[in-house]
Simulated assay, not measured.
Amino acid sequence: MLPRRFRPAAAASVLFSLLLAGCGESQPNAQAVAPPAPKVTVAKPVKKLVSDFDEYVGRFVAYDFVEVRSRVSGYLDKIHFTDGQMIKEGDDLFTIDRRPFEAALAQAKAAREQAEANLAFAESDLKRGESLIRGTTITQQTLDQRTQAKRVAEASVTAQEAAQRQAELDLQFTELKAPISGRIGDRRVSVGNLVTGGTAGNTTLLATVVSVDPIRFEFTMDEASYLRYLRAATEAAATSSNRGMSLPVKLKLIDERDFVHEGKIDFVDNAIDRSSGTIRGRAEFRNPDGKLTPGMFGRIQIAVSKPAVALLVPDSAIGTEQVRKFVYAVSPDDVANPKYVTLGSVVDGMRVITDGLDSDDTVVVNGLMRVRPGTKVSPQQATASNGDGKGTVVGTN
Rank of each mutant, 00 (worst) to 15 (best):
Q164P: 06
S124R: 15
A110P: 01
A115Y: 04
A153E: 13
F173T: 00
T158K: 10
I184M: 00
T174V: 14
A178G: 09
R183L: 05
V191S: 03
P100H: 14
A110S: 10
T139A: 03
A104W: 05
S156V: 08
V191A: 01
R183Y: 06
G192M: 10
Q166P: 01
Q166R: 06
F101I: 13
G135R: 14
R165M: 11
A159N: 15
D125K: 09
I133A: 01
A104G: 06
Q160C: 03
T174M: 09
K127F: 15
E168V: 07
S181L: 10
G185F: 08
E168I: 08
S190T: 11
G185N: 07
V152R: 10
T137I: 11
I133T: 08
E116S: 01
E175R: 03
A149C: 01
F121Y: 14
Q145K: 10
K150Y: 09
V157T: 12
Q145Y: 14
L143V: 02
L126Y: 07
E113K: 03
P100K: 11
S124E: 15
K150T: 02
V152T: 11
R128F: 10
Q141I: 04
L176G: 01
G129I: 11
R99N: 10
R128C: 03
G182D: 14
E116L: 03
A122H: 07
V189E: 13
T158Q: 15
R188K: 13
V152P: 04
S131M: 05
G185Q: 10
K109N: 15
T139S: 12
A111G: 01
R151Q: 13
Q114S: 06
V157I: 00
E113C: 00
A115M: 09
R128Q: 12
I138G: 03
E113G: 00
T147P: 00
G192R: 11
L119T: 03
N118H: 05
T174L: 01
N118A: 13
A163F: 09
E102P: 06
F121M: 03
F101M: 07
R188N: 12
E123W: 01
L176Y: 09
A117T: 12
L171C: 09
Q114M: 04
A120W: 04
V191E: 14
T174Y: 09
E168Q: 14
R165L: 06
A159S: 12
A162D: 12
